[in-house]
Simulated scan of single mutants.
Amino acid sequence: MNDLQIDYFMAVATNLSFTKTSEELFVSQPAISKQISLMEKELGVKLFIRNNKKTTLTKAGELYYEFFREYKKELRDTMYKAAALQQQDPEVIHVGFMEGWDLAEILPEVLQRFHDKYPNTRLAIDCCGVKELTTLLLTDNIQVALTMKNSLTDFNELYQNTVATTRKLLIYSPANEHAGAPDVNPSDFRHEKFFAPWEIVGKMITRLLATYCEPYGFTPEIEFVHNSESVITCVRNNMGVAIVDDWVWCIHSPTLRYIELEAVDEICVTRMKEGVNEQTLFLTELLEDVVRSRHS
């Protein structure tokens, strides 16, 4: 049995769905099923009951779920204590943020205050898309994240605390035909292509973009590209437009222009509700405090 099998088991046990776990982890369902089968063979018990309608944990599966959840928590705590006692390499706590966000007003204070409290623990920064942030949280590859609250509606196992809001902006190139108009309106871009970063949750993104554009009387034509950087590159080169948060750094670039939309979304600090150590709890409260003080 290995860590990969344990991570797959914990993810399926949390979701109670092989299909949903496959989408979250970007791994094929047969690959996950194979690792679970190997795990069941080694343990000598069935972990899940599967039928056409749902997946549930067996009694043995429930026991192992509780065991591995405690195991991960105890392992993190033990690693931290051992490193502190022997002055070995410091423990690393991973904190995740949305890719493209301007964190210059947040990170310096967070890093300094965390170091003052835990000098033997290092913070590592991971920036990625909303779906990847959630997946990394659920698999314990990051411990705390600052992300969009609307991406966490289906995850009751995650602690979520709203700390700020973000205004939605429509960004476009100065070379766009509407750039020189005196009163640019979002409806002027109804015939433009709207770029968005590709996600497994494409249907959710499509629904959100339609909601943002609804007050202006149109449904956007959406083209998905690889990531947020690809979105910005396409817009800068006047290949279309995009809707972003007012937290992104790119809105300060002279190669882009933007107009505000009516839509406002919530930003929240999130982590697992259970099995977290002292450093993770402190980082959660610290991030909440700093973000609120900078964006109140």
Rank of each mutant, 00 (worst) to 15 (best):
E262T: 15
D102V: 00
D89A: 14
V248A: 02
P174F: 11
A83M: 08
F114K: 05
P215A: 07
F9H: 01
I36N: 05
A84C: 10
R207M: 12
Q143F: 04
F18N: 00
A60D: 14
S151A: 15
R167W: 07
P254S: 07
D188S: 12
G129S: 14
T255G: 02
V269M: 03
S33N: 08
N176Q: 10
V163H: 05
G202Q: 13
T139C: 05
T55L: 04
R292A: 03
Q143A: 13
E40T: 09
C213N: 04
Y159M: 11
P108M: 09
T58M: 07
L152E: 09
H252T: 10
E199A: 14
S22E: 05
K203Y: 09
L152M: 14
H295W: 10
V290H: 00
L136I: 02
D7A: 11
L63S: 09
G61A: 00
F189V: 07
L47Y: 06
A179F: 06
E157N: 10
V144R: 01
T255V: 07
N176P: 07
R76N: 06
S187P: 02
V231H: 04
K46I: 06
Y8G: 00
L75V: 05
A145N: 03
E223G: 03
Q5K: 12
E42I: 05
S293K: 15
F218Q: 08
T233A: 14
V184Q: 06
L111H: 05
I125H: 07
L138M: 12
T78H: 09
H191S: 15
E99V: 11
L169S: 06
P30K: 08
R122D: 08
I93Y: 02
T162I: 14
F194T: 02
E229F: 13
F18G: 04
K193E: 08
A210T: 14
N156S: 15
R257W: 05
L281R: 13
G202C: 07
C128T: 15
H226Y: 12
E260G: 14
N185E: 15
P108E: 08
V12G: 04
V163L: 04
Y64F: 15
K73W: 11
L283H: 02
F67V: 10
I232G: 01
Y80H: 12
L152Y: 10
M39I: 01
V184T: 12
V291K: 00
S22C: 13
Q87S: 13
L123G: 04
Q29A: 04
N185Y: 12
H226L: 13
V290W: 03
E285F: 01
G217C: 10
G240T: 06
